[in-house]
């Protein structure tokens, strides 16, 4: 009996220790996960998504100009195949806090069905990159349909613990190429799911106006429709109209004013003192 009692005591003690270790390990895994989400990662990439028919090299001139006259940001290009396969070109330099990641698609055709598919492909690339580079906050720039892809991604696929800081769309047709106020199915869907957009996101929507109605491809009215998606949902929504030279739809990513806007709003770099004062980053000169 005494022997049995002793065995029972030992078994009980071992069981208690195993129980504490198991529950402790489960609890700690949860804690570390929460901590990881709370602490901003050192790397906050800037995603660049080209529009329809454009390849992963679409932003090369833009990146060259953005990198001019300073320590260049590294560039990683990812192409998502139709079978969800990812092809990488370039690399992210160690210590680069804001690398550029261009995400392009094998199927880069226009049309709502393709755009929806591209948003899903983008989410596949995003999750793979997140696992690889351990970032939990980012900004994004999308040209033309690339902006729509990013908006759909933010509404449908953004992981819960990831913070989208700034989104800059260049001539993104929220109502496709429609020149009337009648909403397309895509815009209706975007409006329906707008509540999923992160409330801390800052959105800048740039419209090019080569003529009175638009940039030659996307009507101004369609870009302007973005207000129905973002306004009163995200932290701030700003529409900027760029006119003058190089305001044709295809020239917009190389437009000097837009490059300055990306520097100012997305990268927070190379900002002139005048602009800093306007944005209250510097005290006013008395």
């Amino acid at each position: 009996m005494s022997m049995m009692k002793r065995w029972a005591k030992w078994t009980g003690s071992v069981a208690v220790v195993i129980c504490l270790a198991t529950f402790g390990a489960v609890w700690q895994k949860r804690q570390v996960k929460t901590l990881r989400h709370e602490v901003p990662s050192t790397i906050a990439p800037v995603f660049l998504v080209p529009g329809s028919s454009a390849s992963q090299n679409r932003f090369d001139p833009l990146i060259r100009r953005l990198n001019r006259g300073r320590q260049p940001h590294s560039v990683l290009k990812v192409k998502v195949g139709k079978d969800d396969h990812l092809t990488y070109t370039g690399r992210i330099r160690k210590g680069d806090r804001h690398p550029f990641i261009v995400v392009a698609f094998s199927n880069n055709r226009d049309g709502y069905a393709n755009i929806k598919q591209q948003a899903r492909w983008f989410s596949i690339a995003f999750r793979a990159l997140m696992k690889l580079y351990h970032f939990n906050h980012f900004s994004a720039v999308g040209h033309s349909n690339g902006g729509i892809v990013l908006t759909l991604f933010l509404e449908r696929y953004l992981p819960a613990h990831v913070t989208a800081e700034r989104l800059l769309t260049i001539a993104s047709p929220y109502n496709l190429e429609r020149r009337t106020a009648k909403k397309t199915q895509m815009l209706k869907d975007l409006i329906r799911e707008r509540k999923q957009l992160p409330t801390t996101l800052k959105v800048y929507s740039i419209a090019g106006t080569q003529n009175y109605s638009g940039d030659g491809t996307v009507p101004f009215m369609s870009v302007d429709s973005g207000k129905y998606v973002f306004q009163n949902q995200v932290a701030s929504y700003t529409e900027i109209v760029v006119t003058g030279v190089a305001t044709n739809h295809h020239q917009l990513p190389q437009n000097r004013q837009i490059i300055n806007l990306i520097n100012q709003y997305v990268l927070h770099e190379n900002i002139s003192d005048t602009v800093k004062r306007q944005n209250k980053l510097l005290p006013r000169i008395k």
Binding site: A21, G24, Q28, Q31
Partner: peptide
């Protein structure tokens, strides 16, 4: 590296502070 409660049994501290 990871923080653990002060009353964590000593022999489990390392296990939990290294996340298992």
């Amino acid at each position: 590296v990871y923080p653990v409660p002060a009353t964590t049994p000593g022999f489990l501290r390392g296990f939990l502070a290294t996340n298992g």
